[in-house]
Amino acid sequence: MDNNLILDIENLVVRFETDDGTVRAVNGLNLQLEKGHAVGLVGETGAGKTTTALSILRLVPDPPGVVECEKLLLDGQDIINMPIKDLEKIRGKDVSMIFQDPMTALNPVFTVGEQIAESIFLHEDVSKAEAYKRALDMLELVGIPAERANEYPHQFSGGMKQRVIIAIALACHPKLLIADEPTTALDVTIQAQMLDLIRSLREKYSTSLIMITHDLGIVAEICDEVAVMYAGNVIEKGTLEDVFNRTKHPYTEGLFNSIPNLNDRKVMLTPIKGFTPDPTNLPPGCAFEPRCPYACENCLKEQKDIYISDTHFVRCSRYEEDGFSIDRKEIQ
């Protein structure tokens, strides 16, 4: 089974040592992803999604970031103990990342063609001219006319920039693509185009995907699996059906209850009360305990992953009790 994993993270801890105290961004996170699969990493702002993604490329800024983990394998390669030289060969080649804000993610002083070609030139055994030629093909592939390759980022709209960023990320056909809220900064109409593009290119190159988002709709559209993050931990993970239809964690339930239901507009929205915990001062035990309607004393002790099925686990100690269930009905 292990050989089939593109990504295998065990007990990832990331903290930022700042003047104002230690920010505990990721706290013992486990995440596995099979080759060719797409997982949606869902959670509120500040849940540690981006930090987790950056850890996979080992791009967490250090200082102040400190990354520790038991295991971080990318396609069987140990990322955490890898020398920086080898790491540079993997970045952009085996794993690529699309960043959140297309307005700032491109270097303003190089043409978009140069920026795509750079990636190809670094990783493939080709001449600069050949790399540039392939960059033009890549541009066409993401729907930008090749003639625009010698233009600069400031001449492109936000959506066009995001296309360029996708072209950079996919230029060397990576095995794993991490997309960090690739549509948040874009107009709704452009969002759909972007998702279509990512989906079709992913199918074309059979790339595995981590889609970071806070939009459950995008997850349903694009992903096979869902991992819900809260305060630096995956608190529930399973297939789309597992998480959407057989929701287990109270926090996941809260997320679903916060989405307006277009089919039944009479249903009242039930927002999750309270705020995300202060990452410099996390509560002991389950981080969701102070906001959780089902909280009991046991929630104050350390939490373990409890497997509901082969594909579905939840990190909530209440499921150790027989017969515990949340209010949300299972959907058959």
Partner: peptide, 11 residues
Amino acid sequence: MARKNKKAAAS
């Protein structure tokens, strides 16, 4: 991103 937001919240 996560960190920035936390900082903003702190300030």
